[in-house]
Design a binder for these strands. Structure first.
Lengths: 189, 189
DNA sequence: ACCTGAACACCGTTCAAGT
DNA sequence: ACCTGAACACCGTTCAAGT
């Protein structure tokens, strides 16, 4: 159902509803606390059934929010690959941009932290692209000799997951920018 | 209700039930997936009402599991403070020990990741002690000149939270020991 | 082709009755 | 003083009826 490639375009009202549902979910997550489907439906101005017509279950809705965010991550990674100079800094900047992206999206944070594997399965294609772009950035940084030699491409999402946890918890005295800079300094050779 | 200091000792059967409930919860979390209170009660061999007699709600049960784990964290920190030589290594070893501790406790991980502030409020006293011990370890490491000068005591739980997220997710190609070593290398001056 | 919302299912929580 | 489990409440999900 998730507008996956080759199917016929949705009716205009359906497409509008779908967008409204995702916006409503994002807004409710941004407001903090628990988010119920009934609430999402009400804010989106649709019936619950419509939410379930577009998203088979709550995890699928979360998964779509995650997927949209991964597209933004990938834009940042692609932009970093454009840069020719200073490969390590390009990688670092992309990670800073992605962390900032997560910082303004409570829904994705919630999905990352509390969501099961099924949430991520929805964004499998985007995660694949994420890993390809990341692998290229890491390879270039290695070639330049600026990156710690045992650092691997999967370490990027791993440490980003850690920073994301810090952002989401937001405890007193915590600062995710410091956290990321600490990690980046550990990555530097 | 949480055997908080000055109240009269529990009846022997009540104390036994309380321990069984916590053990059951730990075991079920270790087995993975969702954990329901009914299930906890069944495995502990008590009625649901008994679970609610000992723990006002599910978060309180989670909070008690977190509290017990924080006591173990604090033992590790205290042991590190005993060491006279190499203050940075003492701090690093304590962090490794605590990460390993979290790695064998899925219940605490779940509470850390998904639990709200109320879960942590239960362990306020233990967290206070955690911060005092950590502050001492960080101060000593700073004095020895081995620790990055802008590193602060609250950064310890912050980065540990990140490593905990890595442990809990356990995605392919991730290795929380590598994650922690990367962070430690960022901490080293 | 899509929408609605009452009805159902599941699980957290309560409480009257029991020992 | 503590325990039990049926009953209740809440929220995710379904589906018959509507446009």
């Amino acid at each position: 159902m998730q507008s996956q490639g080759y199917e016929r375009p949705m009716r205009a009202d359906a497409r509008r509803n779908r967008a409204r549902i995702m916006d409503a979910a994002r807004e409710l997550f941004a407001a903090g606390g628990e988010v119920q489907i009934d609430e999402v439906a009400r804010r989106a101005g649709v019936g619950v059934g419509t939410v379930y017509r577009h998203f088979p279950d709550k995890e699928a809705l979360m998964g779509e929010l995650v997927r949209a965010r991964f597209r933004l991550f990938n834009e940042n990674l692609a932009a970093a690959l454009e840069r020719e100079d200073r490969p390590f800094d390009a990688l670092a900047e992309a990670m800073r941009a992605n962390a900032a992206s997560v910082a303004e999206d409570a829904a994705t944070r919630f999905a990352f932290m509390s969501g099961g594997e099924r949430v991520f399965a929805h964004a499998a294609v985007e995660m694949e692209e994420f890993m390809q772009l990341t692998t290229a950035l890491v390879a270039r940084a290695h070639a330049s000799g600026e990156l710690r030699s045992d650092f691997q491409a999967p370490d990027v999402p791993m440490v980003m997951c850690g920073v994301c946890a810090t952002i989401d918890k937001g405890a007193a005295g915590w600062d995710w920018r410091r956290h990321l800079e600490l990690v980046l300094s550990g990555m530097r050779r």
